[in-house]
Design a protein around this nucleic acid. Structure first.
Lengths: 135, 135
DNA sequence: GATTCATATACCTCAAAAGGAATATAGTCG
DNA sequence: CGACTATATTCCTTTTGAGGTATATGAATC
């Protein structure tokens, strides 16, 4: 993987934040919305950009598109994502994202990365946990 | 230093190559020209971009502008520059740049980072080493 | 099939920036 | 001061891409 391609992915704050929280585990778009406090359209676009360049992979689970980091990233990508994790520790915007992610953790534990909607919005209908986990 | 600002500097191949060779030591523009095989105007622009964002510092020595990495970079910059060095090792374009730099090494040893012209062009007038080193 | 939910994409606007040609600027030397 | 060297900057063109509005697409459910 060309190094400059990686940096082209990292040079946007939204994408940087996406990759930073993704290191903690897979997420669907509506969880990204809650964690990053960004609109769906914006996130979808950036996720598409990352997907097109091999920085994230996506799996559909029913209504939910679940994004994850590549399971076997090339070494230069691995190194840069590790570097990002180290550096983000001291930066407020990334810490805030993680705080929001922690607040979501119970919901994630219950439904997995595909859920029934952002934590900020009450579920319209209860979703059974089983279908979300079934693959 | 904001992380995304660093990546904005790294997301251009020319700038990436500049930073990569600069880790080996200070260089003037015409040495960059020789090492990176890129035109002066292009390099000046990218160096200006990097300078404006604090990624390089510059010193004038007579006719020569000598660029260097910051002597005390913030931790996130240090980490990313180290990461770049590690990753560039396996990439042909960066290795070629280093090869050209090694080929220039004797000229650098003689005149320092400010020189009398690119190695590809014979010097019009011999420059004494002393003025280039004097600061 | 209609409805609903999740999310991708089309269309549009605007801004940033890469790169080249031309030229300005700063310094040196005779 | 003029000539020369090194290099920064201006002007211009083109490209890329961020982000918003609107809408299309895919899946689930009844």
């Amino acid at each position: 993987m060309e190094l400059v391609k990686i940096y082209e992915c990292l040079c946007d704050l939204t994408r940087l934040r996406v990759l930073h929280v993704l290191a903690r585990g897979p997420l669907c778009v509506c969880h990204f919305q809650a964690v990053l406090a960004e609109p769906q359209v914006k996130l979808s676009k950036h996720l598409a950009y990352l997907r097109a360049r091999g920085l994230v992979s996506v799996t559909r689970r029913g209504n939910w598109m679940v994004y994850a980091l590549p399971s076997a990233p090339p070494p230069e990508l691995r190194a840069n994502l590790a570097c990002l994790q180290d550096c983000a520790r001291e930066q407020p915007i990334f810490r805030r994202d993680l705080a929001r992610l922690e607040r979501l953790a119970p919901a994630l534990a219950e439904t997995g990365p595909g859920c029934c909607g952002p934590a900020t919005r009450p579920p319209r209908r209860a979703r059974p946990a089983a279908p979300a986990r079934a693959r």
